[in-house]
Nucleic acid binder design. Sequence first.
DNA 1: TTGAAAGCGATACCAG
DNA 2: CTGGTATCGCTTTCAA
Lengths: 345, 345
Amino acid sequence: MTIDIIDKEARNVPTLASIAERVGVSVNTVSRALRAPNTVRVELRRRINAAMEELNYVPNRLAGGLSGTRSDIVGVVVTSLYYSEFASIIDSLQSALLERDLQVMLANTRYNADQELRLVRSILSWRPAAVAIIGVDHPPKVVELLKASGIPIIEMWDTGGDVIDTAVGFDHTQVGAAQADHLIAQGYRRIAFLGSVRENDKRAQKRLSGLEAAAAAAGLPEITKHTAQQGGNPELGERLATELLEHHPEIDAIACNSDVVSFGVLRALKKLGKRVPEDIGVIAFGDNEAAGCVTPSLTTIRPDRERIGKLTAEAIVARINGSEPRITIVDWQLVVRESTQRSTL
Amino acid sequence: MTIDIIDKEARNVPTLASIAERVGVSVNTVSRALRAPNTVRVELRRRINAAMEELNYVPNRLAGGLSGTRSDIVGVVVTSLYYSEFASIIDSLQSALLERDLQVMLANTRYNADQELRLVRSILSWRPAAVAIIGVDHPPKVVELLKASGIPIIEMWDTGGDVIDTAVGFDHTQVGAAQADHLIAQGYRRIAFLGSVRENDKRAQKRLSGLEAAAAAAGLPEITKHTAQQGGNPELGERLATELLEHHPEIDAIACNSDVVSFGVLRALKKLGKRVPEDIGVIAFGDNEAAGCVTPSLTTIRPDRERIGKLTAEAIVARINGSEPRITIVDWQLVVRESTQRSTL
DNA sequence: TTGAAAGCGATACCAG
DNA sequence: CTGGTATCGCTTTCAA
């Protein structure tokens, strides 16, 4: 007994028992004072709160989660954190979850499938109330684990494929098609696709195939592709664009997989003496905050990341409360700026 | 609000006991097969692993953490997730922690002090192995809680002030001074400061005061300030710059608090017919990925976010393993581009 | 309104 | 090598 007390003293982390002892009540009265205050006498409650305040008591949720019937962790699995691609989704998601006292446990796969399995397993080991994950294309084992967990699984960003449970996002194939359609409407005919397309970035692949299909449907010559596996940045865009035009001087439009890459494309075109949008049109995807500030300003597709985060939070709460799984489409927008405005000339 | 998870009874989530029963050994043995495989007979181990695989067993770390001595969670508290300000720090931090099997629990205060207290409390309730938090300026209660927790606390990004335990970052006052020094060296005399400076963004305030001090030391007239509380974006920069020049046409240099804001500043100056860098110089802070792609390209300060994340992870591991607290300075860099290159004309 | 006692799932220390 | 058994801190009946 004495040893026990010394032990606790040494670790210096107050527990419900410390509070109870100090106030002279039982552990579970203190517990109730916390979770159901109105079941505890006012004066007693006040003394308990005072003791907690004084000892800097912080509940141990590991214990709470183990014992109780609720767990308020939400696992969030993204494929990237670079260049705000998903940062704003996480931002709005976590802030909406906060209102429900749900805590975000974050994992970043960096587009690595092995990592994804490992991270999903790790997240599930915390017995989250739900998991939100980027994309609908996961290794079979990941899908199996997520399904077996029995908790709501919300797939974000992409809805074009087999959904495990609930999804919030849009069909990336249509984005590619919209890029092609816009370029064609502006009179461009020899379209190239350029950018970073990582092996596990199925969304990028879908956008590309949407672009190809739409171009083919319009009777255009085959899309010239020039891609790289590495992450996207302006330097990559500059290099790829330079190489592309060297081998394919006939190109009159470039569809990019991300705004950041296209910034480099614009720089390359300027160096090559190509006029944008007159000689070559450029369209991208992402709506980076700088897209309207480069010269010429960039035509791009704007996904509503904030809304995806918010709706994902709502879907999580709804599913936890027992509503049915569903797929929510979040509209994106074509933002036409100077880089493709040939028609007004 | 608390939320009930889906009926536990209905779901048969496998536990160590399920595995043990299936294989016909004790719980204990299964546990050891997991943590110390070489203390279990090979053949038995194989059967245990097979059972785990078959049942999709995922360990319950709530239980593990409660019973064991460590929790493997690292709490990460940031002040913003927008515009990749801290996303890349989190990116490199979490990826470095991953190698140590440490899990990131994320919280975003959005520059709100009340939120910070609430979130820190929430994070501590998961009994993390350590907490990494942006900045060294926290409400007293936050500091008290963090200190009382008895775990390593790593303050990131800023080192200019009272450090709780360990810090990885740089002195933001010096950044402001460097902005001033550079502008002065390029011959600018009437400097203005412009941008988003939120009440709780002490770093922004430090950069500003560094700028003012350096300007004063060089005998320049007082810095004209034009700031806003809202978050920074190009629109804000455009508005602030337009207003600024309307009231202070004598200004010949603008120091900005973030690249994203200065993108808008450049746009405003172009509309006003001001030449950059000839009439007005522009310097910013952050080194956004587009900084080299706008016209004129932007002179800015580049903090090494990736390195801060990585060194924070290392500091966490070191502190957990008992090494002494320390402050690590991570160098930043002045990146001179066109927007201030007046001297070469 | 309050308290006693039985878990929650895993770990750790001892025996066997 | 393997198996009891006592926790870990809190929640949750069920009584009082």
